[in-house]
Design a protein around this nucleic acid. Structure first.
Length: 231
DNA sequence: CCAGACGTTGTT
DNA sequence: GTCTGG
DNA sequence: CCAGACGTTGTT
DNA sequence: GTCTGG
């Protein structure tokens, strides 16, 4: 991880398998006067600096790369505060006819790390009786059009940056990186269906990545009532 | 000028 | 903070 | 993303 | 339906 993301030391406690929006997530970012990028914990869900309260972050978990440069909520972060979120895999939920959702796990075929393009912000936290004023550091993950592998599952996918673009994404003037976000080539990725156990962030272990076994049991009446009948 | 929004996903 | 709508 | 909550007044 | 929390 340190080598891939040019960090000056190997991070600790990196093993997470199921990170939900609103949770803390590690991101690589460039700080002024810092030679090498640093790894920081950010709250997933960007809270703009002007927000009245932090609740808006619950909805700003993604930003469309096509419009990030112009949207008031993301514009300054795009210009000044871009980051890269390391990931070994991610999940997408496929809407099935009937309304059920099938979760899928996606990763690179060769298992190498992905770097999601992101933006980060700082929001001044109001002081309270038991806590002094401070800053909330948060982030959002950029999305782009789904590639051919992901298209059957979902219309959008996270922006995955090629290794050779990391430095530019973190350090170059924004005008030079606006067109970097693009769908990752589908032929280097793979996906497989996984259990609904992934739906709970409490299940944060490697078993949520296991391929879902085909269900050979007969449909039950309750399955039919709940629209869970297999085809 | 002031007031109010500021976003994505997906579903209808 | 900055933009849009009235 | 998904899961789960979501509200006040007044009456028992 | 919409918002909040994880």
């Amino acid at each position: 991880m340190a080598k891939h993301f040019s960090l000056d030391k190997e991070p600790e406690e990196l093993l997470r398998f199921n990170i939900a929006p609103s949770q803390m997530i590690r991101a690589v970012l460039a700080l002024p006067h810092s030679g090498t990028p640093v790894l920081r914990l950010l709250k997933w869900g960007l809270v703009p600096s002007w927000a009245r309260d932090a609740g808006i972050g619950n909805r700003l978990i993604n930003a469309r790369a096509e419009t990030m440069a112009h949207k008031p909520a993301f514009r300054s972060a795009f210009q000044q505060r871009r980051c890269i979120i390391p990931a070994s895999h991610f999940f997408e939920w496929q809407r099935l006819p009937g309304g059920n959702r099938q979760a899928h796990c996606i990763r690179l075929k060769d298992g190498s790390p992905m770097g999601f393009a992101g933006l980060w912000e700082h929001w001044p936290t109001p002081g309270a009786d038991d806590s002094p004023p401070g800053s909330l550091f948060s982030c959002t993950i950029l999305t782009t059009a789904a590639n051919e592998l992901l298209a059957p599952l979902h219309q959008r996918m996270p922006v995955i940056l090629p290794l050779e673009s990391y430095d530019a994404w973190l350090n170059a003037p924004s005008a030079q990186v606006a067109s970097l976000p693009a769908p990752w080539p589908a032929d280097t990725m793979e996906s497989w269906p996984v259990s609904t156990r992934v739906n709970s962030p409490l299940n944060d272990d490697p078993t949520i990545m296991e391929k879902q076994k085909n269900s050979l049991r007969r449909n039950t009446i309750s399955d039919l009532k709940e629209g869970k009948a297999s085809v």
